[in-house]
């Protein structure tokens, strides 16, 4: 009985996080500012929610949020199963797995900022790998140093935001039952 209630709560909060991530995913596409400096560079706002889900509920929920938000986001922006979708999907999946793994096995060793930076770097590398496969040319790794320069500050601030947000939501009993079922 009690267990059922916990699962219902978790479902509701997870849905909320997915809705938030999808919104950020779409809003982020409206912000072209960074792509004038480095083509394709992004703030990583959608990954912020993935990190919140990982910090609050563990790697499985982070993975679910990442997968569902990149599918839903591309449905709503009309890019499902196009190259844009594969780029964002591969980046979201691999970076959420990397961040979840780091959070599980290196919780004392890494702060949320470190986890977030690693997630941003994995995101960049996996996207460039997929892009290189699509255009059948590895020369696109030319962009990697430029993208990594942006990955450091954006990953750092995304990590701080995710940490503060998780702490705030947990302290206000919003993300309650986060410890009972894992």
């Amino acid at each position: 009985m009690k267990n059922k209630q916990i699962r219902a709560y978790k479902l509701v909060y997870l849905s909320f996080l997915i809705a938030l991530a999808t919104t950020l995913h779409i809003v982020e596409n409206f912000l072209p500012s960074l792509s004038f400096i480095v083509p394709g560079a992004k703030l990583g706002l959608a990954n912020l929610v993935t990190l919140v889900a990982i910090l609050a509920y563990g790697w499985k929920c982070g993975f679910i949020v990442a997968v569902v938000r990149s599918c839903l986001g591309s449905f709503l922006s009309g890019t499902f199963l196009t190259t844009t979708f594969f780029l964002s999907f591969s980046g979201a999946v691999l970076s959420s797995l990397a961040m979840g793994w780091l959070n599980k096995w290196g919780k004392e060793k890494f702060s949320p900022m470190g986890i977030s930076i690693v997630g941003a770097v994995v995101h960049n590398v996996s996207q460039l790998t997929v892009a290189g496969l699509i255009i059948q040319n590895g020369g696109i790794f030319f962009y990697l140093p430029y993208l990594l320069i942006f990955a450091l500050p954006t990953g750092y601030f995304t990590g701080i935001l995710a940490y503060l947000l998780t702490r705030y939501l947990t302290a206000n009993n919003f993300l309650k039952y986060n410890q009972q079922e894992k």
């Binding site: 290196g106 060793k109 890494f110 702060s111 900022m113 470190g114 930076i117 690693v118 940490y163």
Partner: peptide, 10 residues
């Protein structure tokens, strides 16, 4: 909000 040793390493 402080970077750990491993953060700095990364």
């Amino acid at each position: 909000i402080r970077l750990t040793y491993y953060d700095k390493l990364v």
